[in-house]
Design a protein around this nucleic acid. Structure first.
Lengths: 337, 337
DNA sequence: TTGAAAGCGATACCAC
DNA sequence: GTGGTATCGCTTTCAA
């Protein structure tokens, strides 16, 4: 009777034995084949192939003291724009043989636990997307690179990537003012994310300072949700004594809600009301095509990624600001007289 | 001069030395404190806390021959329903101390590479969501549990979770027929996912077999995209010689597109046209509230997860079918006479 | 209750 | 060009 239990996975020693060489040689065939003779190499490769040998990454990780992982901390996995970003990050990571860990953060306790976990597996870096102010990251070891997107952390002593929100709002206002609008409202979301807040401030500043339009408190509304309260948003603005002729929404999802609400009320868009979004989710994601500010997620993802994996870039703290562009659709038109 | 380079991470030996005990004791204090004396335990814990010692998970993994990870293979990260599912899976994984690896699959080569990687890190299981037929998983070692959702693989020799699509379509048809509709169209997506295909077949069968309505080829359209082609979809159906009075869409996103298209054409919903979706994305994600079939993602996620981590359940192949329910909104009403 | 030592599986240094 | 061997950091018998 044999005591050999059939192993599920073969190790490098087994392969070595089967190929009549030493483990070191097998390792070399895999990692620096140029340092092995062709004969031995073929022989070993044959065995590897025959037994479908897959090196144990767990051992590699221990030896290299790194899991080659990059974590993404996301606070709102249902936000379509962040998902686009995540997808792109996923592509980049795969391309460069990194593992992407998606961490859904609900609260700061979860955040802390994930942070500890990232340290315990010697993560290369953490991409922190959105979320409230925090100082949890204060004591993160320097070997873990931190990059934030749309979020302010305890200090700016780590890298960040942001879309140029001021530029975006400016482009929108320029476009609307050019169409004759002078009554431009801003619909903000109640949960004040960093990005949304920045946009609101940009609106507030530019409207008076650059475009010489009166800033009206009643034109800035805070709304709880996205699509479903579209009707409420339109109702709110339209029942003002002096209703706006254009509504700038803090993101595309809200804009779509407002669009649906307006249509439901029988308002013609853009004849009766112009609507603008923010994100540029997807060229093909709204109908009628929304006028919106496009934040190039390819570029944003690339910057986030490079701040972690590019040794030159990762060596210093960077604050990348990505240009945005205005995508003019069918929801904006000349102001109603 | 000292040759000591300041280590970024302390190891269990350092902690042991600082606490004047052996590494074994430190390990015990962490993993089975009941087997240590209170005095030693406090002493060691104090040191652990003081130096913020985080055990190296990489070493643990090697020893335990497992990364305690569960992979999710997703083919369409921008599909809102899958994201909801992913979020819930993420929650479950965190709760039970598993690591969730989100793998975005673009093609079968990527899929194969991820599969190899999952083996190399001794993944506990893989949740395969959506995607075309494949036989890539044929040789997956039995220690990696496979569970699919909305996908057919080479054999049904692995577990699966599916929503009861037939039931869903039945509920919809019952609802519509009850409202007097006899001309019910089905808008399918061109990219035939398993789930969408099943629904289409259910429609095809039930319409004639159970509801005694004629099955018309021209009532089943295949459309490329979701929201933006909503107008095209409505145009197509409305220009038929005998247009339908209700359109059942293969998912909620498409339904919203159709809704917007209909409104754009000046059609009243539901007076002129009833619209039904499928997914039940989110109670609060459409306006007017869409009538749709809700697939309970909490339950689906739970089943998927248990098929991997619950030892009893994971020991056998299961095919869980999850009940769906009809959520009646404002987009369906009595058929136009 | 505690400590010493072997090993998890791959790598890289150092001889040959 | 190839093979022996210590090593990564932790866990776990086995002795004391």
């Amino acid at each position: 009777m044999s005591n050999e239990k059939p192993k599920e996975y073969l190790g490098i020693r087994e392969i070595a034995k089967l190929a009549h060489v030493s483990p070191s040689t097998v390792s070399r065939v895999i990692n620096s084949p140029e340092r092995t003779s062709e004969e031995v190499r073929n022989q070993v490769n044959a065995v590897i192939k025959k037994y479908h040998y897959i090196p144990n990454q767990l051992a590699k990780n221990l030896f290299s003291k790194s899991s080659n992982a990059i974590a993404v901390f996301i606070h709102d996995m249902t936000n379509a724009y962040f998902m686009l970003l995540l997808k792109e990050l996923s592509r980049l990571a795969f391309e460069q043989k990194y593992t992407l860990l998606t961490c859904n953060i609900n609260n700061s306790q979860v955040e802390q636990e994930y942070l500890d976990y990232c340290q315990s597996i010697r993560t290369k870096g953490i991409i922190v997307v959105d979320g409230p102010f925090t100082d949890l990251y204060k004591h993160t070891p320097p070997s873990i690179k931190l990059v934030s997107f749309d979020r302010v952390m305890d200090s700016w002593n780590h890298s960040s990537v942001t879309a140029n929100q001021l530029q975006g709002i400016d482009l929108v206002l320029e476009h609307l003012v050019g169409l004759g609008h002078r009554k431009i409202a801003y619909a903000a979301d109640k949960w004040k994310s960093y990005g949304a807040n920045t946009r609101k401030h940009a609106y507030q500043q530019l409207i008076g300072w650059k475009y010489n339009l009166p800033y009206r408190e009643d034109y800035v509304g805070y709304f709880e949700c996205a699509i479903p309260c579209g009707l409420d948003i339109v109702n709110y603005y339209m029942s003002l004594p002096d209703p706006p002729t254009a509504i700038l929404c803090t993101n595309d999802t809200m804009a779509i809600g407002v669009l649906m609400g307006a249509q439901h009320l029988g308002l013609k868009v853009p004849e009766d009301l112009s609507i603008v979004g923010f994100d540029g989710l997807n060229e093909n994601f709204s109908f009628p095509k929304l006028t919106t500010v496009k934040q190039d997620y390819h570029q944003i993802a690339r910057h986030l990624f490079d701040n972690i994996v590019d040794p030159v870039k990762a060596a210093q703290v960077h604050h990348d600001v990505v240009d945005v562009s205005l995508s003019i659709g069918q929801t904006t038109g000349p102001a109603k007289r």
